[in-house]
């Protein structure tokens, strides 16, 4: 086994750490750095609970080696909660009952945020397709789709208002 000194930026904070070759990024984030946003679900890149943004793209952090992320910029759901008020995506998941137990929610939010960056006005089919890699065993997805639609609308309104300034 080899150990590696790596540098990663998580939610804007730079970290230096030592990881084993086989340490998965999700475990480095949770166990070594204390970022417990990404959840460990299936550990086989099926469920999406561990979704983070790696250099701006949604990926499943159980299927990336921590050492592969050396030099990368990581964003977890924690970056959304560091503010005084909820992010529109979080607000909409709450209002539309887009969660029950909440275990899948961090991943849902990270995938949704990438979707809305690429496509600010997705239709239902596009939302369902974008979230196909995130499993929820509580809601039946109906309210998650509603939450994403509502978040998209709020974010479009905010973007328009900012454009008017």
């Amino acid at each position: 086994m080899t150990e590696h000194d790596i540098e990663i930026t998580v939610n804007g904070t730079d970290h230096e750490m030592t990881v084993d070759s086989r340490t998965l990024l999700v475990h480095a984030l949770r166990d070594q750095l204390g970022y417990t946003g990404p959840n460990v679900g299936c550990e086989s890149s099926m469920c999406g609970a561990c979704t983070i943004h790696l250099d701006g793209e949604a990926v499943k952090s159980c299927t990336v080696l921590a050492v592969q992320a050396d030099g990368s910029d990581v964003t977890t759901v924690g970056d959304f909660a560091d503010r005084d008020s909820l992010h529109p995506i979080q607000e909409s998941f709450s209002e539309e009952h887009g969660l029950q137990c909440g275990y899948c929610t961090p991943g849902m939010i990270m995938t949704t945020s990438e979707l809305l960056e690429r496509n600010p006005d997705p239709n239902e089919e596009e939302i369902r397709e974008a979230l196909e890699g995130n499993l929820c065993r509580c809601t039946g997805y109906q309210n998650i789709v509603k939450a994403v639609e509502s978040a998209a609308e709020k974010m479009r309104t905010t973007a328009t208002a900012e454009g008017d300034d």
Binding site: S45, A58, V59, K60, E114, G133
Partner: peptide, 9 residues
Amino acid sequence: VGDIQVRNR
């Protein structure tokens, strides 16, 4: 292939 997270990687 897979889903968007898989396709990104």
